[in-house]
């Protein structure tokens, strides 16, 4: 009896998967939604999940030299750069940017996880088209859609591990060069 039930349940699970795949084939993404897939943190999401994430995203446009966020301000939103470049400054009185982030990059993401105030100032170097996600919507999305949440969080972990790893290698190489 138990075995038969297992087979039936397995059959239903397979049928459900098949239906889901078919359903995904019929769903088409808009151009803006397609652009989301280009970001590394969303690359593992399927079409349905991309649609769900796009629901909580706001499009913002910043003029050249416009301040996106300032150091010391509360962290509410993280930005994904669709077009243009953004300068990041570690200090308020700094003239030269510490980092320039271009198309496909994201700014203000670490603060979303740490919950601290902004530790950098972001200024639009050129006219920028960005996608903004508020931390409230992001946290709700992770909580209410654990499948999407786990994929995104995993992607963030990979991203930060890679950047940390790259930084360690760079520092190692610099140290070796100095020696």
């Amino acid at each position: 009896m138990g075995r038969r039930l297992d087979i039936i349940l397995e059959f239903f699970a397979m049928a459900w998967k098949w239906i889901k795949k078919r359903k995904e084939l019929f769903i088409t993404l808009t151009d803006n939604e397609k652009q989301l897939q280009n970001f590394s943190v969303f690359s593992s999401l399927n079409t349905l999940q991309i649609k769900a994430i796009y629901g909580i995203i706001f499009e913002r446009t910043f003029a050249s030299n416009e301040i996106i966020f300032q150091i010391g301000h509360p962290n509410i939103v993280m930005y994904f750069i669709l077009e243009g470049e953004v300068d990041l400054y570690d200090a308020e009185d700094s003239d030269t940017p510490n980092l320039v982030v271009g198309k496909g990059g994201l700014v203000g993401s670490i603060e979303i996880f740490t919950g601290d105030t902004r530790f950098s100032t972001a200024v639009a170097r050129t006219k920028c088209k960005m996608l903004a996600i508020s931390k409230y919507d992001f946290r709700n999305m992770v909580k209410n859609n654990p499948r999407i949440g786990s994929k995104i969080l995993l992607a963030f972990c990979e991203k930060y591990t890679k950047s940390l790893y790259t930084k360690i290698i760079e520092e190692k190489e610099n140290a070796e060069k100095k020696q």
Binding site: F58, R60, F62, E66, I68, F69, H73, P74, I76, V77, A132, S134, Y136
Partner: peptide, 13 residues
């Protein structure tokens, strides 16, 4: 406006 965007999100939340 961009200047009040984050403030707006905080208040509406």
């Amino acid at each position: 406006p961009n200047k009040f965007f984050e403030l707006y999100i905080t208040i509406t939340q």
